[in-house]
């Protein structure tokens, strides 16, 4: 017997202090939605986890429509995380598909002890690290994309909104530099800093996702930021 499925919450854009305070450009720039805005609602939204638990129960019962709702809600965040980790669009799509398929097969395993998004990102993190190891065993260093390829790929990775040519070029170069610097980090440092500073997750959530103690999460983020700051100081002048 299936329960009535509630409508997914509308994800109203949420003010993000770091953006609203510090970034006067962001309101002008035709940016894609931030994590909390482009679906995959923030786990801090108290209405969300219940809905998602219900959706997952329905997925476990074979409800394709419930699965579709979850995929649509989280596709961008999962894809973005995978792409940041492997630095390759095709590989990222492949990985992100696998993440959702894993969710599909194991929906019945979700116990609701953590937020759904935490559970999903735990799958994504595990599969991404496994894929990176697999690629390395095959002699393909994931995330170490040759610069000329990176430029092309990252130009397409970024949001293709109505930007003028100069701004698009600058954005593409910045995106390339950012991805190159991220790819230089060790995988476990890469994962935590991407979750924190690009997916805007809390330390608590990252600790849940990685299974690492809070202190370890903090020190990894600290070290990752130090390394990135060195490489990107010029870019973010």
């Amino acid at each position: 017997m299936l329960r009535a499925m509630p409508e997914p919450p509308t994800n109203a854009p949420m003010a993000r202090s770091a953006l609203t305070v510090a970034d006067e450009r962001s309101s002008e720039r035709a940016a894609g939605p931030r994590p909390a805005e482009r679906g995959g609602a923030s786990t801090r939204d108290p209405a969300t986890p219940m809905d998602e638990k219900v959706l997952l129960e329905r997925v476990a019962a074979g409800d394709q429509r419930a699965f579709q709702l979850l995929v649509e809600r989280y596709q961008h965040r999962v894809f973005a995380f995978c792409a940041r980790m492997v630095g390759d669009r095709a590989e990222a799509e492949d990985l992100a598909q696998d993440v959702f398929l894993t969710l599909y097969r194991n929906a019945g395993e979700f116990r609701g002890e953590s937020a759904f998004s935490t559970w999903l990102f735990r799958i994504a993190k595990n599969q991404t690290l496994n894929r990176i190891k697999y690629l390395e065993r095959r002699g393909r260093a994931a995330g170490r994309v040759p610069p000329e390829l990176a430029e092309d790929r990252l130009a397409r990775l970024t949001d293709e909104d109505a930007l003028d040519a100069d701004e698009r070029l600058a954005q593409s170069q910045r995106a390339e530099a950012v991805q190159a610097a991220i790819s230089e980090l060790a995988e476990d440092h890469r994962a935590v800093v991407v979750l924190r500073d690009m997916e805007d997750m809390s330390y608590e959530e990252i600790s849940d996702i990685t299974g690492l103690p809070l202190g370890t999460v903090k020190s990894r983020i600290h070290r990752a930021r130090s390394a990135l700051a060195k490489r990107l100081a010029r870019i973010f002048q």
């Binding site: 894609g32 894809f79 973005a80 598909q97 930021r225």
Partner: peptide, 30 residues
């Protein structure tokens, strides 16, 4: 440097899943 980095990373345009991604996932699940 650090605060520019953190703000800069947050401000990077988010990556979006490619067109048709959800459909391809659903087809595989089906």
């Amino acid at each position: 440097d650090r605060s520019r980095l953190v703000q800069g990373l947050l401000r990077e345009p988010p990556l979006m899943a490619p067109e048709g991604f959800a459909d391809r996932v659903l087809a595989r699940a089906q």
